[in-house]
Computed example of a mutant assay.
Amino acid sequence: MSDEELAESTRGMIAGWDGSGERRKQPSLGRQVNLSLLRFPDTAQAETALHRLADRQSENLPGDSVQLPKFPQARAKWSVSKKYLDAWLTHDAMALYVHVEDPLSEPAELAPLIDFAQKYFQKQIEMLASYTPTPVDQLGSLPLDVDGILSRTLPLEEKDRIRKDYDNSMVLPVRAALHFENLPGLTKAAFDDAGVDFVSFSSARLFRARDADSATRLLAAFADQDSDGYRKIDSPPNMPGARCFDNKDTKSTSARYPPVCYFAYDRYVARVTGHNLQELYQRTAAQYKLLVH
């Protein structure tokens, strides 16, 4: 839908979050999920937006209405031909949405997808119990750069922006940062061990650990992850402590394994990527200078 139609359908929305996951590393080789959570001023506005969005989606992607036994108040739609389930639910002033599909199962099975959707709703509602919404009039006062971490992160170049007028640089608390990791389960264990509290995102990623020793362990954990897709390469000149990798498949252009360097400085670990090795080494050296100086 257009930006205007989306704005009309979600009138009153204060904030929204989304996440996604794959059953396997290779997309479309197993179950896939997309989750969304929208915050509204009150339950009535959340309910109204939910029905607008669900109605609009049904127009685009028809399916059969089904019921979730544990959440009879939810709206759910099943497409046997596309092998996916969509489900919507309001909880207080929140609208919850889950899209789950299983492209490989033959014949298409609805029951496992209903089970997953119900587990998602149960877990999401459980997690919302500890969520305290920031009052709307205080949103503008939230810090954009926690403790100056973003100012020490390599800035985003215009060619790497989603849009020329949009810079999505940000500082995230550690739990939110997991949404941007390819292997969130392994990364969470590494974050917990290293005491990571904030992650800065821009042209590079900067992870703040508990102390220097913790940063060293986090560096080792990052270097071990995804080793099946990477091959070790030389470090940038005069940076022997950096650990750098490139795609094992020299003919591949997969965005999953871009050339990457990791290094630790004080309590920080930097993850720097580039489009080629020359750019990677230049960016890594520039990120190091930002941390040192």
Rank of each mutant, 00 (worst) to 15 (best):
Y84N: 14
F121D: 06
L50I: 03
V136K: 08
P41G: 05
W88V: 02
R52M: 09
A93V: 01
P112E: 08
M127R: 15
A74E: 06
I114F: 04
E59M: 05
P107H: 00
S130G: 08
Y131R: 01
Y131T: 08
K123V: 09
A54H: 11
H99L: 12
W78I: 01
L53N: 11
T48N: 09
Q138V: 01
P103K: 02
E47Q: 13
Q122D: 12
A117S: 12
D64C: 01
F116H: 09
T90C: 10
F71C: 04
H91L: 03
K123Y: 11
L139T: 07
L50F: 05
Q73D: 15
Q122M: 06
I125T: 10
Q45D: 12
L38G: 13
Y84V: 07
F71G: 03
K119N: 12
S105R: 14
L128T: 05
E109I: 07
T43V: 07
P107R: 05
A76K: 03
P135L: 00
F71I: 00
D86L: 06
S79D: 13
L104S: 11
A76H: 04
E106H: 08
L89M: 03
T90L: 02
E59C: 00
D55S: 13
D137E: 13
L85A: 04
L128C: 09
Q118C: 04
F40L: 01
Q122F: 00
Q45V: 09
D86F: 08
K82I: 05
F71E: 01
A44N: 09
E109T: 01
L128W: 02
I114V: 14
V80K: 10
